[in-house]
Design a protein around this nucleic acid. Structure first.
Lengths: 336, 336
DNA sequence: ATGAAAGCGCTAACAT
DNA sequence: ATGTTAGCGCTTTCAT
């Protein structure tokens, strides 16, 4: 079909082996020869066939990104960081949507991945998720972003601390009836959701309060879900004076619900989110921010290091510090 | 390393050719044989090596997505649509960030793509962008989302109309001094930005008005940029009573700027955006919405059709209808 | 309906 | 420093 390594070899008057070495910058090539080869390759507009070199070398030259969602802010932003980290290395980025219960894939992902990528950055999947587990078991290089674990490279914020920080902030403001908008009803303590909830509970109990189950609702980590959840909470007999939302997007929805009920965030009900979504600024949402792009970049770097160092590599674990950004959505309890 | 087609062949007592045929669902395989092969493959946990089959067949089994940004809402959402369209076909999704002036890539993208993907969905790049041009010239299957052109499959909204619609809405409300927040100072008329601006100008001139250059500012399609742009506009001697923002994200920034200046969108200055970003709802932003996920899905489908139909394929052009969603950010001019 | 065998275009020993 | 030569694991004629 197109120009092959043989054409370049012929044009440069060398063997294909020399072309291969010269073009990949390997040693044992006379500088003069290298230049001749490069020039020939350039002239012929030669590009090595990835399939061929992958087959021959056993390396795929690609990094897979495993993510449950691609459009949501947190995930898209992590992917942006990964893409940045990959911009200056000769690796392809294979995007794989996984574990989205709405859309099951064909065939097992672990299986397909094995021969398709040299490693994977996994976004927001717990360490003992089936896919992660079987990948790790197969010695497949993996790096997690959004959850921390000892045996695998992983970058995340301290979610328990995040929950505690947000809740404590509300407590400090004098709030005593603090609701919670979580993602889904699950008592899985390994997930970000589980940990943030644990932090929330811990802060409350430390303050001598008991979490009221009737003030917990679920928003599926979407804005519309957050809106519905807030409505649910508002229809309870005794409304809270503050609500901790496990993500900014849900908090935005909660804000919308408040507005629709003629209430003002920070005046009638205090709101705190998690993420540091760009819009939290415009909407004056108090939030616990995390450096999402950096996290994607760091996880990718850890993965690349792990791949080049081999299985002996010590996994990198990095707990990224979060920061509470106080805005007008959280104000002192009016009280009485 | 792992189990190959030969192992399966041995286990099933057939040749590798038969295994290949059986597993890919080709004809001329006895049903009984096929079952035996499938069962053997299953038992051995066999997965065909993509590099090998790609090399042998000449097809890459992957679709590239070319995008200038991965984290921004519009782009991430289009990618989500593409990912959805690819979920049920055996094609990999290769994500390639291009044309982001901040981060030049290594080597020419067109060149690398040729041997890496069977086709590409290109997001928001004009038809005569270098990359698109050279791809098309090489007969490489391409499908555009975000711009329309006759010779290539393309899905987009009518951007001129979009600009006109938004501006006309403001005119209908009685506004006469209508500012513009665009992306960047460029008079390229092929881009979405150029066309929306043209629609804006057209609506104004049709109404007998002359666009005032001092009421145009640039926000780089980001929220912070939109904020700065709005500040610029506000510091002009004669402020407008309304501003048309070429994207919702910039409009959010503009809202923030207004708030910071003690002004209320829709009361002091009317605002209209473009996109239908989920947050436009919470923020009560009047906007021209486009079905972004669908557009990604449609473009992908068009690409796949084009690939299977061969070069004879008639390109699909689809101009997606937009819809003006009126919210409280646009109110009648106070007037006098 | 199935098998044999020749590649696909590279890389990686191994020679020289 | 460079060339020779076996594959890598599949697909695809061409036979049978």
């Amino acid at each position: 079909m197109s120009v092959t390594i043989r054409d370049v070899a012929a044009a440069a008057g060398v063997s294909t082996a020399t072309v291969s070495r010269a073009l990949r910058g390997l040693a044992y090539v006379d500088e003069e020869t290298r230049l001749r080869v490069i020039s020939a390759a350039h002239q012929l507009d030669y590009v090595a066939s990835p399939s061929a070199s992958r087959l021959a070398s056993g390396r795929t030259g690609t990094i897979a990104v495993l993510t449950p969602y691609v459009g949501r802010w947190f995930f898209a932003t992590v992917i942006e960081g990964i893409s940045q980290a990959l911009a200056n290395v000769p690796l392809d980025l294979l995007l794989v949507e996984v574990g989205n219960p709405d859309r099951p894939a064909i065939g097992s992902i672990e299986q397909r991945l094995r021969s398709r990528a040299d490693g994977a950055v996994v976004i927001a999947l717990p360490e003992d998720h089936d896919v992660v587990d079987s990948l790790v078991e197969q010695q497949f290089p993996v790096s997690l972003v959004g959850s921390l674990t000892e045996r695998i490279s992983s970058i995340a914020i301290d979610d328990i601390d995040t929950g505690r920080l947000a809740t404590q902030h509300l407590l400090n403001l004098g709030h005593r009836e603090i609701g919670l908008i979580s993602g889904s009803p699950s008592d899985d303590t390994r997930t970000a959701q589980g940990k943030r909830t644990a932090g929330y509970v811990s802060a409350l109990t430390t303050a001598g309060l008991t979490p009221r189950p009737d003030l917990t609702a679920f928003g599926d980590f979407t804005q519309h879900g957050g809106e519905r959840a807030m409505v649910e909470i508002l229809t309870q007999p005794r409304s809270p004076t503050a609500v901790f939302c496990l993500s900014d997007e849900m908090a935005f929805g909660a804000m919308a619900a408040l507005h629709r009920h003629g209430l003002t965030p920070g005046v009638d009900i205090a709101l705190v989110g998690v993420d540091g979504h760009p819009q939290s600024d415009v909407l004056n949402l108090t939030t616990v921010t995390q450096p999402v792009v950096d996290m994607g970049r760091l996880a990718t770097q850890a993965l690349l290091d792990g791949i080049s160092a081999g299985p002996a590599h010590q996994p990198v674990q990095k707990s990224i510090p979060v920061e509470l950004v106080v805005r007008s959505s959280s104000a002192p309890a009016k009280n009485g």
